[in-house]
């Protein structure tokens, strides 16, 4: 077991599964500047530690995965130009979306604004029955800015994404399941054990296979179908070659 301490994030590796806990429970794990920096460092650990096969994100405390951005820190950037510069220099969202290892969000309680956007950067979302989802930014004169306007329509389609973001309304776990925001709802009290089980199963698979599937799906959707199919062929052929080489006792 490996742990690393950050101010706002607990990081713990158990076997091949890295647990990332957003840890500001008194503030419903609201995302702030410190959490941005801690999350960025955490992602570096996950990406570079070969012992990590899968990462699971969750929130500390009883009440929330993450209730959104910490508005008390808004307006602290010295200027719009600096805000934009920092946004791209420490691009947590691109880093999350670019992770080659499978990511799971295990969601209980409030999962709002940036919280839902963090979850939408993951590959799988599993909800507790009490989970509450929403992107309320437009109600506050803002837009989702942690990738939500891009990730949500790609995950669940434009129709539902437009409705969710233009109204900002909240959805319960059942509606999130029907709309495809989450793919599973765990039994009461079972969201972390369900995530653990799925993470273990994925972590037991060949990491190169997991990387290839992620690349084929996400990069394939960015390309014309014919190019996506060619990429799938190339990735599959590389996996076969590697496993043949391994059987012969050599290195691919």
């Amino acid at each position: 077991m490996t742990t690393a301490g950050f101010d706002t994030i607990l990081y713990e590796r158990r076997g091949a599964v890295a647990w990332v806990t957003l840890n500001r429970p008194k503030a419903l794990n609201a995302y702030n500047v410190q959490m941005r920096d801690d999350l960025y460092a955490t992602l570096e650990l996950i990406a570079t530690d070969d012992a990590v096969g899968v990462a699971v994100f969750r929130g500390a405390g009883e009440r929330a995965f993450c209730a959104g951005a910490d508005l008390t820190e808004f307006g602290s950037a010295p200027s719009q130009a600096i805000a934009r510069q920092v946004r791209f220099e420490r691009d947590v969202w691109a880093r999350l979306l670019g992770m080659e290892k499978p990511l799971i969000a295990a969601i209980h309680g409030f999962c709002l604004g940036s919280g839902l956007e963090i979850a939408l950067c993951c590959d799988l979302r599993i909800a507790a029955p009490d989970a509450v989802f929403g992107l309320p930014e437009t109600q506050l004169g803002m837009i989702p800015a942690a990738g939500g306007t891009q990730t949500m329509p790609r995950m669940i389609g434009q129709a539902r994404a437009l409705e969710a973001m233009l109204t900002g309304r909240r959805m319960d776990a059942r509606e999130a399941l029907a709309g495809g925001i989450v793919t599973r709802v765990a039994r009461r009290g079972g969201v972390f054990s369900t995530a653990e089980r799925i993470a273990q199963r994925m972590a037991a698979m060949n990491p190169e296979t997991m990387r290839s599937v992620k690349a084929a799906v996400y990069r394939g959707l960015e390309q014309p179908l014919a190019q996506g199919l060619a990429m799938e062929q190339a990735l599959a052929a590389r996996l076969v070659a590697a496993s043949d080489a391994a059987r012969r006792g050599g290195i691919g």
């Binding site: 805000a83 837009i143 800015a145 306007t149």
Partner: peptide, 10 residues
């Protein structure tokens, strides 16, 4: 998205 969000700062 990031550009529009920063533009909204104004």
């Amino acid at each position: 998205e990031a550009d529009l969000a920063v533009l909204l700062h104004t």
